[in-house]
Design a protein around this nucleic acid. Structure first.
Lengths: 250, 250
DNA sequence: GCTAGTGCACTGGTCTGACCAGTAGGCTAT
DNA sequence: ATAGCCTACTGGTCAGACCAGTGCACTAGC
């Protein structure tokens, strides 16, 4: 024994090499958002491949949210600024394929939101506090009239908290998971008979959370935010899964 | 005014319709993992499109991790069981494009791991406790000899905790973010002069965390786990970013 | 002079048809 | 019965074509 150890090789297709090269250029910043790729016919020359191969590479890059192409555009594909769209897509797939329950999703939101509040209580700026105030004001105005406006203001509050945490990963995951959760329940909330009471209570809870953030009491803000989210969604979680949510409330 | 309100339409390409249909079949379970798609030549008949169009659709599905095709395979593309590979890919892209710092990533791991511990303290089974014990044993054995084995045992411990949390989202995000973090620092740890001391201390910390989990003290386990991870990685985080990490330690 | 309209050159989306290397399974020769 | 070849497929790639849509330069009309 002891001969040279060989590594498994995998056949690398031509289009994958193209994906790698363009991906590298985008991620390294050599290709900035807004810039254009050469046209497909140019690229087939540059890479010495056929147009089909170029196109398959572009399809992959597009699926990853790095570029977008538009028929008829005299320029080539456009390099996109990063959006969590691809992340959102794969998380949605995850949710469907793995059969994620609403309870799991809400639980994850509780984790993210409480951590964001914990950090925000220490790191928030006065401007961010003002944003949170404004969001709660809009929630108050929207009550009894427009659930969509209420929900939007609610989202704005949580976004302000997430930004105040200064952790982009928290911000983006918050955004992604929230949109999945809202997709599952927003219709049911909008039609609920007791939605006005639910909204009023939610506003009160948000005020308490904000007070804790303002006071710099991170652990309290975190605890209250978990409670807030629990109360808001528990009615839509099957009874047998509620214990898992309560495990996050001390 | 007051005419019918029209909705914006977007041109839907043929390959997108194919992606949607196959995606739906996979996510709904109509196509189970391990099953095969018809061959590309069959699909072009079924969808009444050319092979290029079929192939572009398959490229997208492959980029999303739903199917895989292999040249020469007499069967068609294989439907894959869900893996977080696509999620991993888009998070890695996110990390690079948005310039996520190691501090942010570690902070996120602290959030996930502490939440997992909080839940695990209440929900863990005896089998899972045994797994955690075994993982720490392997960490002990690996010390002073093989950093890779130590790291693998460390990973196994955190995975056991994540599973004990019974939240798949936490498990998967843990896995994804951890692999990104390890990709950034594992080389530096393996070469560090004080790595043996670091490993010994880490083992002690893991023992304390496990004791808290065993005792059912979630808040304590959560706090200790944050401290454990902080100590393990703080040496690799630039001094000016450490404050953000410390914000998670009370 | 300026504007409104018209082509034109080029784009991406799709199609057709072809070739190649690789695979699996049946067939054949041993 | 088995070892090895054959064949009918597969996916990967290529070449060349057509179409509808786009932006821009040019032109006709004011």
């Amino acid at each position: 024994m002891g001969g040279p150890r060989f590594e498994p090789v995998r056949a690398v297709r031509a289009y994958e090499r193209i994906v790698e090269q363009i991906e590298e250029a985008v991620e390294s910043g050599a290709l900035a958002p807004g810039q254009r790729l050469p046209s497909e016919r140019d690229l087939m020359g540059q890479f010495s491949v056929s147009r089909s191969t170029v196109r398959e590479a572009l399809r992959v890059l597009q699926a990853r949210g790095l570029v977008r192409s538009r028929p008829g555009d005299p320029n080539g594909a456009e390099v996109l600024p990063f959006t969590p769209a691809a992340l959102h897509k794969s998380m949605t797939t995850l949710a469907r394929v793995q059969g994620l329950s609403l309870a799991e999703l809400v639980q994850f939101r509780m984790v993210l939101d409480s951590s964001a509040n914990l950090l925000a209580a220490r790191l928030r700026t006065d401007e961010q506090l003002a944003e949170m105030d404004a969001a709660i004001d809009r929630m108050r105005e929207a009550v009894e009239q427009d659930y969509d406006a209420f929900s939007a203001a609610d989202v704005a509050f949580h976004d302000a908290v997430a930004r105040a945490s200064r952790n982009k990963l928290i911000q983006i995951c918050t955004e992604v998971v929230r949109s999945i959760v809202l997709g599952l329940v927003s219709g049911r909330i909008a039609e609920a008979d007791d939605r006005v009471a639910l909204m009023r209570r939610s506003i009160r809870h948000h005020e308490e959370v904000l007070a804790a953030v303002r006071a710099g009491d991170g652990p309290l803000a975190a605890r209250l935010s978990r409670r807030t989210m629990y109360d808001y969604y528990v009615g839509y979680v099957p009874a047998e899964e509620r214990a898992a949510l309560r495990a996050l409330l001390e």
